[in-house]
Amino acid sequence: MPMFCRRNVLSGLFILALGVPAFSNAYQLFVANLILIYVLLAIGLNVLVGYAGQLAFANAAMFGIGAYATALLQVHLSWPFYFAFPAGTLIAMAVGLLISLPALRLSGLYLALSTLAFAQFTQWVFSHWDNLTFGAGGFKSPPISFAPLPVSKPVGLYYLSLIVATCVTLFAQNVVASRIGRAFVSIRDGDVAAQSLGIDLLGHKALAFGISGFTAGLAGGLYSQLLNFVSPEGFDLFQMVIQKATIVVGGLGSITGSVLGAGAIIIILELLREAKGAQEIVFGGVLILFVTFFRRGIVGSLQQHFRGWDEPLHSARPIGSALPSQVRLGEKESLS
């Protein structure tokens, strides 16, 4: 196996990640933790969009639900973080499953709009259900303590995020390599064909939404702890754009791509701080350039130039083929 192969690079990144708190200042540790949270988000979203081909825009909302649920359980019911966190994650996952119900009937841009509408609705609930969510002003959540362990909160949270992100990466890699992953890909490449192969469409779409809700919920719980402040503006459409950017830049239909994409986008966003006042222009330009010149993302380029980067089931669709079939579904009309 070549030195610079997928497994070695990922292991190298993991070892590097283990050492981050030792050689970074508070700001760098914060950014590193943010990257781990976006790794979680990117993996879930990539399973949903890259593998199962569902053009959904609700991930930022589920991220928000995870963060709100975790923090609110701590604030309202005084649950300790270690109970609130898994419970919040399950709530986000349940919402993910709920969104998948209409998604069975919807495809392409119609699914995009209905999930966008759901995201707007979630934002509205966050800012209007005062008794539950404290409204648009947000609220502080109690910081966790890693008491018996001799670590400060930022370092402890960083390692907790690292453990969760690592587990989810391994879990997702197994899922996409399994029968379930193959079913996702066949749904993406044509749901009618998939159905004729005997694949349970509803079940698998729901599963994909559930997985993305689950990882978004985990990410949300950790995010609420990273900031110790939860308010609606962190979960808006800009958030969704960042998440979409991670998977497109990393590589659609690739778990490794999700990891690399999350790192790349967060680092790009932080580096863009140097382009004072022109961040939007540069960020937009970077997105366009990336999509234009690295169509298959970082992972696609790595596969082209290095051996040992193939992943099971990476983008079965050849590059340069037409738009995915589901986008074209039902969009024809003879006359206006």
Binding site: N25, L34, G234, F238, E270, R273
Partner: peptide, 17 residues
């Protein structure tokens, strides 16, 4: 970016970096 996470990041960068 008018965002809590953005503000915490910005302030940490200003102070520590």
């Amino acid at each position: 970016r008018c965002d809590p996470a953005g503000a915490i990041g910005a302030v940490q960068k200003l102070i520590f970096q």
